[in-house]
Measured scan of single mutants.
Amino acid sequence: AEIMKKTDFDKVASEYTKIGTISTTGEMSPLDAREDLIKKADEKGADVVVLTSGQTENKIHGTADIYKKK
């Protein structure tokens, strides 16, 4: 799966169907969080990951919607 910015995804959204939401939390780098989200998306058969939230304090927390091409 590839990560797309919401603004970029909005241009092609009609080509995809939302298949779920994924999240990651833990003591990790932003890059590790990104890789974890991609891994989870791949496991669910998603083609595209669109980040919906991200937070960093002591731990990273990120959520994303996942989509499959129609």
Rank of each mutant, 00 (worst) to 15 (best):
D65L: 04
V48I: 10
L37A: 02
K68Q: 07
D8C: 09
K39M: 07
E35T: 12
K70L: 08
A46Y: 02
Y16K: 01
D42R: 14
G62T: 15
I22Y: 03
G20Q: 00
L31I: 10
K68G: 02
E35S: 10
K6G: 06
Y67H: 03
D36P: 03
G54T: 12
D42P: 00
Q55V: 12
S53N: 11
T17S: 09
D8S: 04
F9S: 01
T25S: 14
K11V: 07
K70C: 09
L51N: 00
S14W: 13
Y16A: 00
Y67F: 07
S23L: 07
E15F: 13
T63K: 08
H61T: 13
A64P: 01
K5D: 15
Q55L: 13
I22M: 03
Y67D: 00
T7W: 10
T21L: 04
A41H: 00
D65F: 05
Q55G: 10
S14K: 11
I3W: 12
I19L: 08
A33M: 11
T21R: 06
A13R: 13
T52S: 11
K68S: 04
T24S: 06
T52K: 10
T7G: 10
H61S: 11
G45F: 06
S29H: 08
T7V: 13
F9A: 01
E35W: 13
I38F: 03
E35P: 03
K40T: 05
R34T: 08
A1I: 13
A33K: 05
D36Q: 12
K5M: 14
A1S: 05
S23Y: 14
A46M: 02
E15S: 10
V12S: 03
I66K: 02
M28G: 08
I22C: 03
T56K: 08
I60H: 10
V49E: 00
I19T: 03
D32E: 13
T17P: 00
G45V: 02
G45W: 04
E57G: 13
E43S: 08
I60R: 09
K68D: 01
T52D: 09
K39A: 08
E35M: 14
I3F: 10
G54N: 12
Y16C: 01
D10M: 11
K5E: 15
Y16E: 00
D36M: 11
I38V: 08
T24C: 13
G54L: 15
H61A: 11
I3M: 07
E57M: 12
E2P: 03
I66E: 02
T63Y: 09
K6A: 10
T25Q: 11
I22E: 01
E15N: 12
K59H: 12
L31A: 15
I22S: 02
D65H: 05
G62Q: 15
I3C: 06
L31T: 11
S53E: 11
R34M: 14
K39S: 07
D42E: 12
K59G: 13
E15K: 12
G20F: 04
E43M: 10
E15I: 07
E15G: 09
K11Y: 05
E27L: 13
E35F: 11
D47H: 10
K70M: 07
K68I: 11
D10V: 08
T24I: 15
V49T: 00
G62L: 15
D47G: 03
S29T: 09
T56N: 11
E2W: 08
D47I: 04
F9E: 02
T63W: 07
I19H: 01
K68L: 06
K5S: 15
A1G: 04
T63S: 08
F9C: 02
F9Y: 02
A33P: 05
S14Q: 08
T17I: 14
G26S: 11
A64W: 08
G62K: 11
M4F: 05
P30I: 12
K18P: 04
D42T: 15
S53Y: 14
G45E: 04
M28T: 05
L37S: 02
V48H: 00
D8G: 01
V12F: 05
I19R: 01
T7R: 09
E15Y: 13
G62D: 08
S14E: 09
V49K: 00
P30F: 13
A13W: 07
T7P: 08
E15Q: 14
H61N: 11
T24H: 04
I19D: 02
G26F: 14
K70F: 06
S29D: 10
T17R: 11
G45K: 06
D47Y: 04
K5L: 14
I38R: 09
T63N: 07
L37I: 05
A13L: 04
A33L: 10
G54Y: 15
Y67M: 01
E57K: 09
Q55R: 08
Y67N: 00
I60P: 09
T25I: 10
I3D: 00
D36A: 13
A46I: 03
S53P: 08
K59D: 14
E57V: 09
D8F: 05
S23P: 05
E27A: 13
E43G: 05
K18R: 09
I19V: 06
A41M: 01
I38L: 14
D65K: 03
